[in-house]
Amino acid sequence: MFADFIPLFVIIAIALGLALTLLAAASWIGPKRPNKIKRTPYESGMDPIGSARERYSVKFYLVAMIFIVFDVEVVFMYPWAVSFHDFIDAGLVATVGVMTVVGLFVGILTLGLVYDIKKGGLEFD
């Protein structure tokens, strides 16, 4: 029922309201006496050199890609966890069957991880 999700929307509204209120209060109440040092990116730190928009190594992209693959894997495992009690109630054959299906699924995806590690895709030098 939609009514079940109302607390969720309420907590999102509270979180959003709190964040906006704090930001608004800080800019409204807080004293503003800017000077040259205060406006540097790192006050009392190092002077920044060059642009922040540097090109990143493709290695980070590889990590992100593998993260997505295993994120999707977990998504598929969630219905398995939720419906597992019903499979146990349905008997031994159903339980072994679902374990085989999920085992095969995880096994195929683990092959990808093994390939990645063997190829040194997760090594940063």
């Binding site: 493709v58 693959v69 195929i108 990808g112 895709g121």
Partner: peptide
């Protein structure tokens, strides 16, 4: 169909490693 999806994800992993390496 789930296993086919797994193969697709495997292909994505292997492809990413191939391209990045």
């Amino acid at each position: 169909h789930l296993q086919v999806a797994a193969i697709l994800l495997l292909a994505a992993t292997v492809g990413a490693v191939m391209l990045a390496q």
